[in-house]
Write a protein that binds this DNA or RNA. Structure first.
Length: 348
DNA sequence: TGCGCCTCACGTCATGATCA
DNA sequence: TGATCATGACGTGAGGCGCA
């Protein structure tokens, strides 16, 4: 398959996955984030993500009592209520507090780009150097949320409510990745899913599904793994003890896998079936480098996905905050008008 | 219907931040 | 201090939409 075709294939799968994720988020599943609960309102009629609009809010109840620190309940369209603290209070940090830094930096970059255009001297490395200094979204949001109770934090790790759909293309982050002597990658995810990736196939394409079913049969506590290889050979079964770690494959036309108890703990749970000490020839070193690179790329792929997800969440949270602050601002103005009326006696 | 534009999501690279 | 993580930048492809 050509690169274009492959990308198309992967994209189709991923798009489907994304839609499944969106659907699962919209079907009333519990979300503890204001932003996530508002995701449905961010959708346009075409179902496509577009320029986000500010969430409309309504004031659910006027708890404003004079002289007391009032707390106003702001009803978001999603039904979520947000506590807006007293009208008179210490200035809160602007919603664009941290992004202001970004704005300044972007302005600098714009200048840089201009000068680069005019002179054509500044290379992309310098630009990258400047651009990469931005603070992380998570950091910004967590700083904001620590200041203001209404802003949810971006969690370090998503709870299971956002569990990946049972699609092999999702490439669930494996707890253990093994490499067989045939060069295949075997990843055992936390949910027990086993993924086998053929060498040379980057990422999801080479994955073969292994379904695990619990059985009370053979060794107690063992798990029967049905090898769902797409060969015409049919289904193979594996017995996987409870905390299996090591997988080896025999060379030959018919690969076999042995899953054993762990012996040594290597970083990131990666166990090389081929002894590292035997890697002497340049070819083996090159293969090793290639495998390492593929592994790194795979991890980075997942990290990038997660990063984008957090970024979207961050943006939604900011939008929610804008909505809340707008309501707060409106109330401030109203209260100011009221105070003006009280303090300025009407002429007879 | 073809074309151009826009948006979105992705993969990859580079690099700062963080961890062991 | 090296390994790993997190994330911005960049390039690319696909799909939607308006227009001639």
């Amino acid at each position: 398959m050509s690169k274009c075709g492959r990308k198309k294939y992967i994209k189709t799968n991923l798009r489907q996955m994304t839609m499944e994720t969106i659907e699962s988020q919209q079907d009333g599943s519990v979300t503890d984030s204001v932003a996530e609960s508002e995701s449905a309102h961010m959708q346009t009629q075409t179902g496509q993500n577009s320029i986000p609009t500010l969430a409309q809010v309504s004031i659910a109840g006027s708890g404003t009592g004079r002289g007391s620190p009032a707390v106003t309940l702001v009803q978001l369209p999603s039904g979520q209520t947000v506590h807006v603290q007293g009208v008179i209070q210490t200035p809160q940090p602007s919603v664009i507090q941290s992004p202001q830094i970004q704005t300044v930096q972007v302005a600098t970059i714009a200048e840089t780009d201009e000068s680069a255009e005019s002179e054509g001297v500044i290379d992309s490395h310098k630009r990258r150097e400047i651009l990469s200094r931005r603070p992380s979204y998570r950091k910004i949001l967590n700083e904001l949320s620590s200041d203001v109770p209404g802003v949810p934090k971006i969690e370090e790790e998503k709870s299971e409510e956002e569990g990946t759909p049972p699609n092999i293309a999702t490439m669930a982050v494996p707890t253990s990745i093994y490499q067989t002597s045939t060069g295949q990658y075997i990843a055992i995810a936390q949910g027990g899913t086993i993924q086998i990736s053929n060498p040379g196939s980057d990422g999801v394409q080479g994955l073969q599904a292994l379904t695990m079913t619990n059985s009370g049969a053979p060794p107690p506590g063992a798990t029967i793994v049905q090898y769902a290889a797409q060969s015409a050979d049919g289904t193979q079964q594996f017995f996987v003890p409870g905390s299996q770690v090591v997988v080896q494959a025999a060379t030959g036309d018919m690969p076999t896998y042995q899953i054993r108890a762990p012996t040594t703990a290597l970083p990131q749970g990666v166990v090389m079936a081929a002894s590292p000490g035997s890697l002497h020839s340049p070819q083996q070193l090159a293969e090793e480098a290639t495998r390492k690179r593929e592994l790194r790329l795979m991890k980075n792929r997942e990290a990038a996905k997660e990063c984008r997800r957090r970024k979207k969440e961050y943006v939604k949270c900011l939008e929610s905050r804008v909505a809340v602050l707008e309501v707060q601002n409106k109330k401030l103005i109203e209260e100011l008008e009221t105070l003006k009326d009280i303090c300025s006696p009407k002429p007879d």
